[in-house]
Design a protein around this nucleic acid. Structure first.
Lengths: 352, 352
DNA sequence: CTGAAAGCGCTAACAC
DNA sequence: GTGTTAGCGCTTTCAG
């Protein structure tokens, strides 16, 4: 392995970066004084402090955080990790996950933390631990638990500061924040039932904890209404549009004995709408569609999507808070956030 | 200002992190030997190297990058900065920008770099320099130049390693990578003309360089076809859906004398479609719509969007390469990438 | 109030 | 081949 050096040296006519020793010399004081002044220490003479601070500012000095962190044994960087499907080499492009990342970025920034963003193979979520092991980050926020409940439990057992966005699972050791998936499933399904629909399909891969919970809510609502749960109306469609498109299309071609569908993501709902129209069925007249997430674009689709709204901004804050709580010594906790149904035209109140 | 300590100390029963000195002791060698062994130095006995490496792995040791970087004066972190509109407190949620960020993440990971993701007020893009000044990152990739061409030039003049995604501007000192916006505008407009449309509206804020270039392409295509450019058909709609919705709606209510619209983003195209339908005009029969970006969801809208495709994955690579080139001492360069028209149903080939 | 000195975890001369 | 030593840029005792 030849060691490349391309990184180390900046351009040619580059002047060395300003350090404390430089501004110390210019101010005629010692580095310790500069350090104290810049950190607003009460120990240093107000006048000196002022002078040093101004000098530093005018020289556009800014501290070397690497050195500072090393000395202080401190680190204000959090790794945010988005899993991707290595088999289909398909990246997570689901708008919902992306907006969660944005919300986390905000929450982190507000609290003075930096965010290291990376991807990880959805089969090897445990690799996310590397960020903490290497000291690059103090903790990990993982977007989605996928099928790796056990890996996550192992990580938590190793005391890795970790929070995952996802559903609550039995015997869960790791901290998580998620929407109330059972409630979401119930709200969506009840709404469709109220519209008079009785043959309600379910699109989503129940091997994923969140989807599994949503299906519980779905089944529960059906039973409440005395409607039989028909496994033939369940389609294990994944979240990745590339893979899901064909699966959804086939299902819609083969089965025409449903009058509504509850989709476990808005993207899936879009796919379903398109597939239904392609086989000559209209939305919402023939088939009412309810999505999940209330992604930013949901209101601008045609028809605008009725969907289960997830509290993205609050989720970002909650994830960050949960991580900081662990860092402060608290035990990992599970948190479930309220969701509500956002009513739009794809499953309109005025029944067809 | 009371200094909070919440960050520094992990949980209670936490054991100190493993260091080189620990594995040195256990292996019965000095730290230098461990360092060399772990870096695969030829200087150390193959057997020793093996032994040390295994010990380290079995103990789950991983190096402290902070210390390593400090010593090596090296850093493999790049800051990726997404501007946001501070006035409307609206975050960039445009799917296109988000997918560019994803592409950059991939390109950086492939090359062994880490990505620090953050936001910055779109009026103060110069604040992005802070990442480099503080040593947290070796360079900055900025998503969009917005209205701050001058700030960007200043940053480049200061020799800040910087690349921005955006359009080529006159007297530009900073490196940029962007789609061929003039071509995009031309392709979109020509296509609409070929459909027999003559009254083609333009939606987009021409104060933004990219939009300004697209409008040039638009105007050029119109002139080619001997169609007069009508300023009354231009709408300065911003990219933020929140702000744009009302503007687009009003325009569509007031003006009905156009039979096509070229929108400078897919989201804008969605908004336009919805607004047009709301006033009883059909898409594409009455008004053909062409978008821009070919966002992941563009194919799943109704109607599926005809749009100018931007090469996202290639853009990510190009942005990263451009930054690394500067770090290697090359002068900032401008790069324009090809775009093409993706034909779908919102402006169908079989003219209405 | 300020300076001198030690050391955070690691690497790279420089000895042996 | 391997150990010893110095030092990356910063903070913080400890003396004065």
């Amino acid at each position: 392995m030849t060691k490349s050096k391309e990184t180390s040296e900046p351009a040619g006519g580059e002047q060395r970066r300003l350090q404390m020793v430089d501004i110390a010399r210019l101010a005629g004081v010692s580095v310790s004084t500069v350090s104290r002044a810049l950190n607003g220490s009460e120990l240093v003479n107000a006048e000196t402090r002022q002078r040093v601070a101004e000098l530093a500012r005018s020289l556009n000095y800014s501290i070397n955080f690497g050195a500072r962190n090393l000395r202080l044994q401190e680190n204000k960087t959090v790794a945010v990790v988005v899993p991707y499907d290595a088999r289909s080499r398909q990246h997570i492009s689901d708008p919902f996950f992306l907006s969660i990342v944005g919300a986390i970025a905000d929450a982190l920034t507000d609290r003075g933390y930096d965010m290291l963003l990376s991807r990880v193979d959805a089969e090897r979520l445990d690799q996310a631990a590397h960020w903490v092991d290497s000291g690059k980050a103090i903790g990990v926020i993982l977007i989605g638990q996928w099928r790796q409940h056990d890996q996550l439990n192992d990580m938590a057992a190793r005391k890795l500061p970790l929070v995952v966005w996802g559903g609550e699972m039995p015997q869960q050791l790791y901290a998580s924040v998620g929407g109330d998936n059972v409630l979401g499933g119930t709200l969506a399904t009840r709404h469709l039932l109220q519209l008079g629909r009785r043959r309600i399909a379910f699109f989503g891969d129940a091997k994923l904890p969140e989807v599994w919970l949503r299906r519980q809510g779905y089944a529960q609502a059906l039973r409440e209404a005395g409607v039989e749960v028909d496994a033939a109306l369940e389609l294990a469609a994944p979240f990745e549009p590339g893979v899901a498109t064909e699966i959804v299309r086939q299902f819609c071609q083969v089965r025409r004995d449903f009058d509504a569908v509850f989709c476990c993501s808005d993207v899936l709902a879009l796919l379903a709408t398109q597939a239904l129209r392609a086989v000559g069925r209209s939305v919402p007249a023939d088939v009412a569609v309810v999505g999940y997430d209330d992604m930013p674009l949901a209101a601008y689709c045609d028809p605008p999507l009725t969907t289960v709204h997830q509290p993205v901004a609050e989720a970002g804050v909650a994830l960050v808070e949960a991580l900081l709580a662990q860092l402060a010594g608290e035990r990992p906790a599970l948190r479930t956030m309220p969701v509500y149904l956002m009513r739009r035209a794809s499953a309109p109140d005025a029944a067809a």
